[in-house]
């Protein structure tokens, strides 16, 4: 196969474009993370981590207030007896979760598809 100068330029352009595309895909992942809330094992709702929101959840077990703020999520308030969920603080990374045991409520950050991240948090 004979290649001339224009072929090389074409290859270079394609390489640069795909590298740029690759970088773009990798950096925008964090923006794509979702907050998934489940109560008693069934899904209550899914929210983008990127947009601020306060979610009030009332179930037969009690009430919780989840806040999404600046790309992180935390339990703002809860009427459970131990309030460990409120003390757990903010989470940002996919695979991490805030759990309210008495109310069987789980707030989890989930990766957008294809994001390379942690699989579990030992604590």
């Amino acid at each position: 196969m004979k290649m001339n100068k224009r072929d090389f330029i074409a290859i270079a352009v394609v390489l640069v474009l795909s590298a740029a595309g690759f970088l773009f895909l990798n950096t925008k992942h964090a923006q794509g993370s979702r907050v998934v809330i489940t109560v008693g094992g069934s899904e209550y709702g899914t929210y983008p981590l990127a947009s601020d929101k306060v979610i009030e959840i009332k179930s037969e077990n009690g009430s919780n207030t989840v806040a999404i703020e600046n790309g992180s999520v935390y339990m703002k308030d809860a009427d459970c007896p131990d309030r460990y969920c409120v003390k757990q603080g903010r989470i940002t990374d996919s695979g991490d979760s805030v759990i309210c045991l008495p109310h069987k409520l789980v707030v989890e950050v989930c990766a957008s598809d294809g994001e390379n991240t942690i699989d579990a948090v030992a604590k």
């Binding site: 992180s72 603080g89 903010r90 989470i91 991490d96 942690i118 579990a120 948090v121 030992a122």
Partner: peptide
Amino acid sequence: SVAIDNPDSDGSY
């Protein structure tokens, strides 16, 4: 990839 929780700082490892 198993992260170890950092109890000092929210959401960090």
